[in-house]
């Protein structure tokens, strides 16, 4: 089996170690004999996202984010085609925000986003910036899991119809500490950096499984030894008094 990943703006949207997620997806596939092919989709690159199994889009600083807007908007049709083709999406922070309606940055400028989903993001006041460790409880297709990560975002995301999970510790979509992220069965959007996947191996496998579905249908993944991963997660859960 081959898993193809389209990695959007890998050299710009690469804040807070988000590339660690790609490292995890790659290794957890390869350990099971699944080859991984990565296609970089940077500014100006001619890449057909609908040919991918998974599209990954990480976070970046405001300034970097605004520099890629024109290129991103030019791909809107191709992104819609990928969604129709059943491609799985993993969007972190900036990537997550840009799939919504618009983003109002710290200086009050409105940046029109892809407008694929109804949610929108407004940069909070500087004292409202959500920074710190975060834990989120998710129910994902019958599988319940707790994700731990680190959030660092000024943007507050509103009108999320289908959140990824409930905030147990930290902030999430808004400083109100209720829900985190977005998930509609195909697109995952989240504020969790850390990076997200190394210490959330069950979630990494969930993403791999969902991504394989497009080309290979329902697949069962061999279990891997996750002692180190779960120890790393449990240390954080204990610190947040959730364990």
């Amino acid at each position: 089996m081959i898993l193809t990943i389209g990695w959007m703006y890998h050299d710009i949207m690469n804040l807070y170690g988000d590339k660690g997620n790609i490292m995890v997806l790659k290794k957890r596939c390869e350990d099971r004999g699944i080859d991984v092919r990565i296609s970089y989709c940077d500014i100006g690159d001619d890449v057909d996202l609908s040919a991918m199994d998974l599209v990954f889009f990480g976070g970046g600083a405001d300034k970097e984010q605004s520099s890629l807007m024109r290129d991103l908007l030019s791909r809107k049709e191709n992104i819609q085609k990928a969604l129709d083709a059943g491609v799985m999406f993993l969007l972190i922070c900036g990537g997550y925000q840009l799939f919504g309606q618009y983003y109002i940055d710290a200086n009050g400028n409105r940046i029109d986003a892809l407008g694929i989903f109804d949610y929108y993001t407004v940069s909070g006041k500087s004292e409202e910036r959500c920074i710190g460790n975060i834990a989120v409880r998710c129910e994902l297709e019958g599988q319940s899991m707790t994700l731990v990560g680190f959030e660092n975002h000024g943007g507050q995301t509103y009108d999320v119809a289908t959140p990824l999970g409930d905030v147990l510790f930290g902030h999430g979509n808004t400083a109100q500490k209720k829900q985190e992220g977005f998930y509609n069965g195909q697109v995952i959007g989240t504020y969790l950096h850390g990076p997200l996947l190394p210490r959330n191996p069950e979630f990494a496998d969930f993403v791999i499984m969902k991504s394989l579905r497009k080309s290979y249908g329902e697949q069962c993944l061999e279990p891997l030894s996750d002692d180190m991963e779960l120890a790393a997660k449990n240390i954080m859960l204990k610190r947040m008094e959730l364990l």
């Binding site: 807070y16 170690g17 680190f150 850390g194």
Partner: peptide, 28 residues
């Protein structure tokens, strides 16, 4: 408090033959 920077550091540089073992310690 955010340790994600270790993924932005190029540790792969020392994954060469002479490095026989890596030991990790500390709160993370």
């Amino acid at each position: 408090t955010d340790v994600s920077w270790i993924y932005d550091s190029d540790f792969e540089r020392i994954f060469h033959d002479p490095t026989v073992c890596i030991i990790t310690g500390g709160s993370r």
